[in-house]
C-alpha cells in the first residue's frame, strides 16, 4: 500500500489490506494500553524491598525500569516511539545546526525534485521534504519554502501518483500550519 520511504501508494490499496491494517492498529493500541498498565505492576513485583529503604537503592531500581519494559512486552512500537521522540527532542535542542541544515537543504530538495525525472530520486526527495515540513514550525516554514512551491505541488500532470500523494501530504502539513492557509487553499482548489 505504501512504499518503504513512507509515501502513500493507492495502487496497493484493497479492502482486505485496509481491514488488516485496522486490526493491526487495534492490536497495537491494546498492546500499548497493556504497556502503560504493566510496568508499575511488574516493577512492584521485581522491587520487593520495603518502601522506606535508604536512598542508595533508588538508583538500581530506576536503572532496571527500562529493562523491565523491554522484557515484559518486547513491543517494538513503544521503543521505536521513544527512540523517535528522543531523536526529535535531540534535534530540537540544537536549533542552530538544524536550522542551518534546513535552510540550506530544503530549497535544494525542491530544486532537485523539480529537476529530476527518476522516480526513486523524486520519492527520496519527497520523503526529505515531508520530514522537514512536519518538523518545522511556521517561522521555519516561511524561511525555507516559497509560495510558488505550491505550484510544483499541485502540478501533478507529469508525475506518478506515488509522488503526487506525497506532495498532497506536504501541502496538508503546510496548510495546517501556515497562516497563509486560506490563500494557499484557494490556490490549490
Amino acid at each position: 500500500m505504501i512504499l518503504q520511504d513512507g509515501v502513500f501508494d493507492h495502487r496497493g490499496y484493497t479492502e482486505k489490506s485496509l481491514s488488516r491494517m485496522v486490526k493491526a492498529k487495534a492490536k497495537a493500541d491494546r498492546a500499548a494500553a497493556r504497556q502503560t498498565v504493566q510496568p508499575p505492576l511488574v516493577a512492584a513485583m521485581v522491587v520487593s524491598a520495603p518502601v522506606d529503604e535508604p536512598s542508595p537503592d533508588v538508583g538500581p531500581a530506576e536503572s532496571q525500569t527500562p529493562d523491565v519494559v523491554e522484557d515484559s512486552g518486547g513491543n517494538v512500537a513503544v521503543l521505536s516511539k521513544e527512540t523517535s521522540l528522543d531523536r526529535t527532542e535531540l534535534l530540537r535542542s540544537k536549533p542552530a545546526v538544524v536550522g542551518r541544515f534546513m535552510q540550506l537543504i530544503v530549497p535544494i530538495l525542491i530544486d532537485v525534485y523539480a529537476a529530476s525525472v527518476i522516480t526513486p530520486v523524486r520519492v527520496k526527495t519527497l520523503t526529505g521534504l515531508l520530514k522537514a515540513v512536519s518538523f518545522l514550525d511556521v517561522d521555519g516554514l516561511k524561511r525555507v519554502l516559497t509560495v510558488s512551491f505550491r505550484l510544483l505541488c499541485c502540478n501533478a500532470s507529469d508525475i506518478s501518483s506515488v509522488c503526487s500523494r506525497g506532495e498532497l501530504r506536504i501541502v496538508h502539513f503546510i496548510v495546517k500550519r501556515s497562516p497563509l492557509a486560506c490563500h494557499w487553499r484557494s490556490a490549490i482548489g
Binding site: I2, T88, V121, K131, F135
Partner: peptide, 27 residues
C-alpha cells in the same frame, strides 16, 4: 545522488507518530 538524498533523509527528524504512514510502517 541517491545516497546523498538518503543521507539527507536520515538527517531529517522522523515523521510524527500516529499518522497513516507511520501506522503502516509499524504494521
Amino acid at each position: 545522488v541517491e545516497e546523498a538524498l538518503s543521507l539527507v533523509s536520515e538527517l531529517m527528524p522522523p515523521l510524527p507518530k500516529g499518522t497513516l504512514i507511520t501506522s503502516y510502517l509499524h504494521f
